[in-house]
């Protein structure tokens, strides 16, 4: 257990030492989105019955930030260690692939949650949102961050260069999070785009997390949580298989 906890602690300290970039910066970004979009769209976009646009926006922004940062944490830590070669420090000790997985995904989840807490803390006084079902929100936050932490682990193992990881982030993670109904309700889309949106696993994370805040959602939260759980399970199985085989880590 000491090995796993030490690796987790190392991963936490790694982002905590640069918390200004890893937590404060994404919180500020989310706040800017809120100010700009709320100002531009408050009166124009209809979301759920009786829900103000800003109240709709806050949980979506918080979840989007959480997901992006959970992914960024595990993927950038791994790619940096691979590129600089200090990955050997964690490959030489008697750590199992499960411990490795738990530490990286655990740290990514905690980074995501810290960013999410920051976004909610900074925006809710401005907007005045409450949390209708905190447990639902917590469940989606946890499952979503863990899934993206595992996804970051896979991407970090796969990528050989920092550029490749940046491409993955810009062409996969960003579009999928942006088009997951952060800024609009899927219900307002044409039927075809609604169907497409339902193929995006990030949509269920955001919709479910928002249900915890507003008590209203596009999809039944039970269904959403099941989808997110399956997504997490698949990514975890993939990440564990890669770690176990030593793919791109042990030659």
């Amino acid at each position: 257990m000491t090995g796993l906890l030490t690796l987790l602690q190392k991963e936490l300290l790694r982002f905590w030492k640069v918390a200004f970039q890893t937590i404060a910066a994404p919180v500020l970004t989310a706040l800017l989105y809120l100010i700009v979009f709320a100002h531009a769209l408050e009166e124009r976009v209809a979301v759920f019955e009786g829900v103000r646009y800003t109240a709709f926006l806050v949980p979506g922004l918080a979840m989007m930030s959480m997901l992006q940062n959970a992914f960024a944490n595990s993927s950038s830590s791994l790619i940096q260690s691979k590129v600089t070669g200090n990955i050997v420090f964690v490959l030489l000790p008697p750590l199992s692939h499960r411990e490795f997985f738990a530490a990286y995904v655990g740290a990514a989840t905690l980074r995501g949650l810290a960013v999410g807490a920051g976004v909610v803390a900074v925006t809710s006084p401005v907007v005045g949102v409450g949390i209708a079902h905190p447990l639902w929100s917590a469940a989606f936050a946890l499952a979503g961050c863990a899934a993206l932490g595992a996804m970051g682990l896979v991407a970090g193992i796969w990528a050989d260069k920092i550029d490749e990881l940046a491409a993955f982030q810009n062409f996969v993670i960003m579009p999928l999070t942006f088009l997951a109904g952060v800024f609009y309700s899927i219900g307002s889309l044409p039927a075809f785009w609604q169907k497409v949106s339902h193929l995006n696993p990030f949509f269920y994370m955001i919709d479910g997390f928002r249900y915890g805040f507003l008590g209203a959602s596009d999809v039944d939260p039970v269904v959403s949580l099941a989808v997110v759980a399956v997504f997490f399970a698949v990514l975890s199985a993939g990440a564990l298989a890669l770690l176990r085989s030593g793919y791109k880590l042990r030659s």
């Binding site: 000491t2 090995g3 190392k10 300290l13 030492k17 260690s81 600089t84 200090n86 420090f89």
Partner: peptide, 18 residues
């Protein structure tokens, strides 16, 4: 190789913990 995020003592404590 080295990890630029940490001090010498942190590096050694982590390695010991692993």
């Amino acid at each position: 190789v080295f990890d630029p995020f940490f001090t010498v003592r942190e590096t050694l404590r982590f390695q010991s913990g692993y």
